[in-house]
Protein backbone atom coordinates (compact mmCIF):
# COMPACT_ATOMS: atom_id res chain seq x y z
CA UNK A 1 0.00 0.00 0.00
CA UNK A 2 1.52 3.36 -0.97
CA UNK A 3 2.57 5.76 1.77
CA UNK A 4 0.31 8.67 2.67
CA UNK A 5 2.88 11.24 1.56
CA UNK A 6 6.09 10.64 -0.27
CA UNK A 7 8.38 13.25 -1.79
CA UNK A 8 11.30 12.55 -4.08
CA UNK A 9 13.93 15.30 -4.23
CA UNK A 10 11.13 17.82 -4.22
CA UNK A 11 12.59 21.24 -5.01
CA UNK A 12 11.12 24.68 -5.53
CA UNK A 13 13.28 27.62 -6.49
CA UNK A 14 12.36 31.27 -6.96
CA UNK A 15 14.71 33.33 -9.11
CA UNK A 16 17.26 30.53 -8.81
CA UNK A 17 17.14 30.53 -4.99
CA UNK A 18 15.74 27.34 -3.51
CA UNK A 19 12.79 27.75 -1.15
CA UNK A 20 12.73 23.97 -0.81
CA UNK A 21 15.83 21.98 -1.54
CA UNK A 22 15.62 18.30 -2.59
CA UNK A 23 13.14 17.20 0.05
CA UNK A 24 12.81 13.42 0.28
CA UNK A 25 10.35 12.38 2.94
CA UNK A 26 7.90 9.57 3.63
CA UNK A 27 4.88 9.84 5.92
CA UNK A 28 3.04 6.61 6.56
CA UNK A 29 -0.72 6.21 6.54
CA UNK A 30 -2.40 7.00 9.82
CA UNK A 31 0.66 8.83 11.11
CA UNK A 32 0.54 12.20 12.88
CA UNK A 33 3.58 13.99 11.51
CA UNK A 34 4.85 17.34 12.70
CA UNK A 35 6.68 19.56 10.27
CA UNK A 36 8.86 22.05 12.06
CA UNK A 37 11.12 24.86 11.11
CA UNK A 38 11.65 28.59 11.53
CA UNK A 39 9.75 31.09 9.40
CA UNK A 40 10.73 30.88 5.75
CA UNK A 41 12.17 27.36 6.13
CA UNK A 42 9.89 25.99 3.39
CA UNK A 43 7.05 24.38 5.37
CA UNK A 44 4.22 26.19 3.56
CA UNK A 45 6.02 25.78 0.24
CA UNK A 46 6.04 22.01 0.81
CA UNK A 47 2.33 21.90 1.58
CA UNK A 48 1.46 24.11 -1.41
CA UNK A 49 3.58 21.88 -3.67
CA UNK A 50 1.72 18.82 -2.40
CA UNK A 51 -1.56 20.51 -3.37
CA UNK A 52 -0.30 21.49 -6.84
CA UNK A 53 -0.85 25.16 -6.06
CA UNK A 54 2.75 25.71 -7.09
CA UNK A 55 4.81 23.48 -9.34
CA UNK A 56 8.14 21.88 -8.44
CA UNK A 57 11.32 23.07 -10.09
CA UNK A 58 12.68 19.55 -9.64
CA UNK A 59 11.56 16.27 -8.14
CA UNK A 60 8.04 15.08 -7.50
CA UNK A 61 5.66 13.97 -4.79
CA UNK A 62 2.89 11.46 -4.24
CA UNK A 63 -0.07 11.41 -1.91
CA UNK A 64 -1.68 8.00 -1.39
CA UNK A 65 0.19 6.87 -4.51
CA UNK A 66 -1.20 9.68 -6.70
CA UNK A 67 1.26 12.01 -8.38
CA UNK A 68 0.62 15.47 -6.93
CA UNK A 69 1.34 17.18 -10.24
CA UNK A 70 -0.41 14.96 -12.77
CA UNK A 71 -3.15 13.50 -10.60
CA UNK A 72 -3.76 16.56 -8.48
CA UNK A 73 -7.53 16.27 -8.77
CA UNK A 74 -7.43 12.78 -7.21
CA UNK A 75 -5.04 14.09 -4.57
CA UNK A 76 -7.25 17.02 -3.66
CA UNK A 77 -10.33 14.80 -3.51
CA UNK A 78 -8.65 12.89 -0.67
CA UNK A 79 -6.87 15.76 1.03
CA UNK A 80 -7.90 18.55 3.37
CA UNK A 81 -6.02 21.81 3.58
CA UNK A 82 -5.89 24.52 6.18
CA UNK A 83 -3.68 27.40 4.98
CA UNK A 84 -1.29 29.11 7.37
CA UNK A 85 -2.61 32.50 6.35
CA UNK A 86 -6.26 31.57 6.15
CA UNK A 87 -8.39 33.88 3.97
CA UNK A 88 -12.07 33.14 3.62
CA UNK A 89 -14.72 34.86 1.53
CA UNK A 90 -15.54 37.85 3.71
CA UNK A 91 -18.95 38.39 2.16
CA UNK A 92 -20.18 34.87 2.92
CA UNK A 93 -21.65 33.79 6.22
CA UNK A 94 -20.23 30.77 7.97
CA UNK A 95 -23.05 28.55 6.78
CA UNK A 96 -22.68 29.80 3.21
CA UNK A 97 -18.96 29.06 3.36
CA UNK A 98 -19.72 25.54 4.54
CA UNK A 99 -22.27 25.09 1.74
CA UNK A 100 -19.93 26.40 -0.93
CA UNK A 101 -17.09 24.08 0.02
CA UNK A 102 -19.48 21.13 0.33
CA UNK A 103 -20.58 21.75 -3.27
CA UNK A 104 -16.94 21.78 -4.36
CA UNK A 105 -16.16 18.52 -2.59
CA UNK A 106 -18.40 15.66 -3.69
CA UNK A 107 -19.56 13.59 -0.75
CA UNK A 108 -19.05 16.35 1.79
CA UNK A 109 -22.01 16.82 4.09
CA UNK A 110 -23.00 20.28 5.41
CA UNK A 111 -24.59 18.59 8.42
CA UNK A 112 -21.15 17.34 9.46
CA UNK A 113 -19.85 20.91 9.14
CA UNK A 114 -22.64 22.13 11.39
CA UNK A 115 -21.83 19.36 13.87
CA UNK A 116 -18.15 20.36 13.90
CA UNK A 117 -19.11 24.01 14.31
CA UNK A 118 -21.21 23.11 17.32
CA UNK A 119 -18.28 21.19 18.78
CA UNK A 120 -16.05 24.23 18.34
CA UNK A 121 -18.70 26.64 19.59
CA UNK A 122 -18.67 28.44 16.25
CA UNK A 123 -21.58 30.66 15.19
CA UNK A 124 -22.16 30.03 11.48
CA UNK A 125 -24.56 32.92 11.01
CA UNK A 126 -21.89 35.61 10.85
CA UNK A 127 -20.00 36.88 7.81
CA UNK A 128 -16.41 35.67 7.65
CA UNK A 129 -15.07 39.23 7.63
CA UNK A 130 -16.80 39.94 10.93
CA UNK A 131 -15.09 37.05 12.73
CA UNK A 132 -12.09 37.35 15.00
CA UNK A 133 -8.87 35.66 13.91
CA UNK A 134 -9.43 32.68 16.18
CA UNK A 135 -13.05 32.25 15.11
CA UNK A 136 -12.01 32.43 11.47
CA UNK A 137 -9.49 29.72 12.18
CA UNK A 138 -12.26 27.55 13.65
CA UNK A 139 -14.25 28.02 10.45
CA UNK A 140 -11.13 27.06 8.50
CA UNK A 141 -10.85 23.85 10.52
CA UNK A 142 -14.52 23.06 9.84
CA UNK A 143 -14.06 23.68 6.09
CA UNK A 144 -10.94 21.51 6.02
CA UNK A 145 -12.64 18.54 7.64
CA UNK A 146 -15.89 18.66 5.65
CA UNK A 147 -15.09 15.79 3.32
CA UNK A 148 -13.66 13.44 6.01
CA UNK A 149 -10.37 13.38 4.07
CA UNK A 150 -7.71 10.67 4.16
CA UNK A 151 -4.83 13.13 4.45
CA UNK A 152 -4.92 16.41 6.36
CA UNK A 153 -2.38 19.07 5.39
CA UNK A 154 -2.58 21.67 8.10
CA UNK A 155 -0.39 24.74 8.19
CA UNK A 156 -0.28 25.83 11.84
CA UNK A 157 -3.80 24.60 12.56
CA UNK A 158 -4.13 26.01 16.07
CA UNK A 159 -2.69 29.41 15.30
CA UNK A 160 -4.77 32.14 16.94
CA UNK A 161 -6.80 29.76 19.09
CA UNK A 162 -6.99 29.95 22.87
CA UNK A 163 -5.74 26.89 24.83
CA UNK A 164 -9.27 25.54 25.28
CA UNK A 165 -9.95 25.71 21.58
CA UNK A 166 -6.50 24.31 20.75
CA UNK A 167 -7.45 21.37 22.89
CA UNK A 168 -10.84 21.01 21.16
CA UNK A 169 -9.22 21.14 17.71
CA UNK A 170 -6.67 18.52 18.71
CA UNK A 171 -9.44 16.30 20.04
CA UNK A 172 -11.06 16.47 16.60
CA UNK A 173 -7.76 15.86 14.81
CA UNK A 174 -6.96 12.90 17.06
CA UNK A 175 -10.39 11.52 16.22
CA UNK A 176 -9.59 11.93 12.53
CA UNK A 177 -6.28 10.11 13.06
CA UNK A 178 -8.16 7.45 15.02
CA UNK A 179 -10.29 6.64 12.01
CA UNK A 180 -7.12 6.23 9.95
CA UNK A 181 -6.51 9.70 8.51
CA UNK A 182 -2.94 10.94 8.16
CA UNK A 183 -2.27 14.30 9.80
CA UNK A 184 0.63 16.32 8.41
CA UNK A 185 0.92 19.65 10.15
CA UNK A 186 3.34 22.46 10.65
CA UNK A 187 3.60 24.10 14.04
CA UNK A 188 5.62 26.33 16.31
CA UNK A 189 3.93 25.11 19.49
CA UNK A 190 6.37 22.54 20.82
CA UNK A 191 4.18 21.24 23.61
CA UNK A 192 1.53 20.46 21.02
CA UNK A 193 4.09 18.71 18.83
CA UNK A 194 5.36 16.71 21.78
CA UNK A 195 1.88 15.60 22.78
CA UNK A 196 0.44 14.82 19.38
CA UNK A 197 3.18 13.71 17.02
CA UNK A 198 4.76 10.38 16.47
CA UNK A 199 7.51 11.76 14.25
CA UNK A 200 8.77 15.17 13.28
CA UNK A 201 10.63 16.53 10.30
CA UNK A 202 12.77 19.61 10.78
CA UNK A 203 13.37 22.01 7.93
CA UNK A 204 15.95 24.73 7.83
CA UNK A 205 16.53 27.04 4.90
CA UNK A 206 14.62 24.70 2.61
CA UNK A 207 16.53 21.57 3.62
CA UNK A 208 15.37 18.69 5.74
CA UNK A 209 17.85 18.53 8.62
CA UNK A 210 16.19 15.79 10.66
CA UNK A 211 13.37 13.26 10.59
CA UNK A 212 13.03 11.58 13.95
CA UNK A 213 10.51 10.00 16.27
CA UNK A 214 9.92 12.48 19.08
CA UNK A 215 11.40 10.10 21.66
CA UNK A 216 14.60 9.61 19.67
CA UNK A 217 14.93 13.33 19.16
CA UNK A 218 14.75 13.96 22.87
CA UNK A 219 17.04 11.05 23.65
CA UNK A 220 19.61 12.45 21.27
CA UNK A 221 19.70 15.77 23.00
CA UNK A 222 22.74 17.09 24.84
CA UNK A 223 22.53 16.71 28.60
CA UNK A 224 24.09 19.12 31.02
CA UNK A 225 25.77 17.27 33.96
CA UNK A 226 27.17 18.91 37.11
CA UNK A 227 29.13 16.72 39.58
CA UNK A 228 30.48 17.73 43.02
CA UNK A 229 33.24 15.61 44.57
CA UNK A 230 34.54 15.08 48.11
CA UNK A 231 38.33 15.05 47.94
CA UNK A 232 40.05 14.68 44.53
CA UNK A 233 38.50 15.32 41.21
CA UNK A 234 39.08 13.28 38.02
CA UNK A 235 41.80 14.52 35.68
CA UNK A 236 40.86 15.75 32.18
CA UNK A 237 42.31 12.53 30.78
CA UNK A 238 39.94 10.48 32.98
CA UNK A 239 36.88 12.09 31.41
CA UNK A 240 38.10 12.35 27.81
CA UNK A 241 35.34 10.12 26.52
CA UNK A 242 33.40 10.02 23.23
CA UNK A 243 30.25 12.20 23.47
CA UNK A 244 31.49 13.93 26.63
CA UNK A 245 32.74 17.51 26.68
CA UNK A 246 34.08 19.15 29.80
CA UNK A 247 32.53 22.61 30.13
CA UNK A 248 33.91 23.91 33.42
CA UNK A 249 36.49 22.72 35.96
CA UNK A 250 36.12 24.45 39.31
CA UNK A 251 37.10 21.86 41.97
CA UNK A 252 35.35 20.33 43.75
CA UNK A 253 32.80 20.74 40.91
CA UNK A 254 33.04 19.72 37.25
CA UNK A 255 30.49 20.42 34.51
CA UNK A 256 30.01 18.32 31.38
CA UNK A 257 27.90 18.24 28.25
CA UNK A 258 26.96 14.68 27.34
CA UNK A 259 25.43 13.44 24.09
CA UNK A 260 23.42 10.24 24.39
CA UNK A 261 23.79 7.83 27.33
CA UNK A 262 25.48 8.69 30.65
CA UNK A 263 26.87 5.19 31.26
CA UNK A 264 30.47 5.80 30.11
CA UNK A 265 30.79 9.00 32.13
CA UNK A 266 29.40 7.41 35.31
CA UNK A 267 31.80 4.50 34.97
CA UNK A 268 34.74 6.90 34.60
CA UNK A 269 33.64 8.84 37.71
CA UNK A 270 32.91 5.79 39.88
CA UNK A 271 36.39 5.59 41.52
CA UNK A 272 35.84 9.07 42.97
CA UNK A 273 33.73 10.11 45.95
CA UNK A 274 30.69 11.87 44.51
CA UNK A 275 28.77 14.24 46.80
CA UNK A 276 26.15 15.36 44.31
CA UNK A 277 25.19 14.81 40.69
CA UNK A 278 22.70 16.93 38.80
CA UNK A 279 21.59 16.53 35.20
CA UNK A 280 19.46 18.82 33.06
CA UNK A 281 17.98 17.95 29.71
CA UNK A 282 17.11 20.78 27.36
CA UNK A 283 13.45 21.28 26.49
CA UNK A 284 12.27 20.41 23.02
CA UNK A 285 12.17 24.13 22.35
CA UNK A 286 15.86 24.49 23.16
CA UNK A 287 16.67 21.41 21.18
CA UNK A 288 14.86 22.65 18.11
CA UNK A 289 16.55 26.00 18.46
CA UNK A 290 19.86 24.22 17.93
CA UNK A 291 18.50 22.79 14.68
CA UNK A 292 17.06 26.12 13.62
CA UNK A 293 20.31 27.93 14.21
CA UNK A 294 22.41 25.17 12.74
CA UNK A 295 24.17 24.38 16.01
CA UNK A 296 23.02 20.76 16.18
CA UNK A 297 25.96 18.52 15.54
Amino acid sequence: MPAAIQTFDLTKAYDGRPALDHLSLTVERGEVFGFLGPNGAGKSTTIRLLLDLIRPTEGRAEILGFDTRHQSHEVRARTAYLPGDLRLYGNLRGIETVELFCRLRPGADPAYGIELARELDLDLSKHANALSKGTRQKLGVVVALLGRPDVLLLDEPTSGLDPLMQHAVWEILRREAGRGATVFFSSHVMSEVEQTCERVGILREGRLVAVEPIAALKGRSLRHVEVSFAGGVPSPADVALPGVRELRRQPPTLEFEVAGELDALLRALSPYHILDLRTEQPTLDELLMTYYTGEAA
Partner: peptide
Protein backbone atom coordinates in the same frame (compact mmCIF):
# COMPACT_ATOMS: atom_id res chain seq x y z
CA UNK B 1 -4.52 38.81 -4.04
CA UNK B 2 -7.30 38.34 -1.48
CA UNK B 3 -5.59 35.05 -0.59
CA UNK B 4 -8.72 32.89 -0.94
CA UNK B 5 -7.61 31.18 -4.17
CA UNK B 6 -5.38 28.76 -2.23
CA UNK B 7 -8.28 27.30 -0.32
CA UNK B 8 -10.47 27.18 -3.42
CA UNK B 9 -7.90 25.36 -5.53
CA UNK B 10 -7.12 22.96 -2.69
CA UNK B 11 -10.60 21.53 -3.25
CA UNK B 12 -11.09 18.73 -5.77
CA UNK B 13 -12.07 21.11 -8.54
CA UNK B 14 -10.06 21.48 -11.69
Amino acid sequence: SAGSLDLLLAQPVK
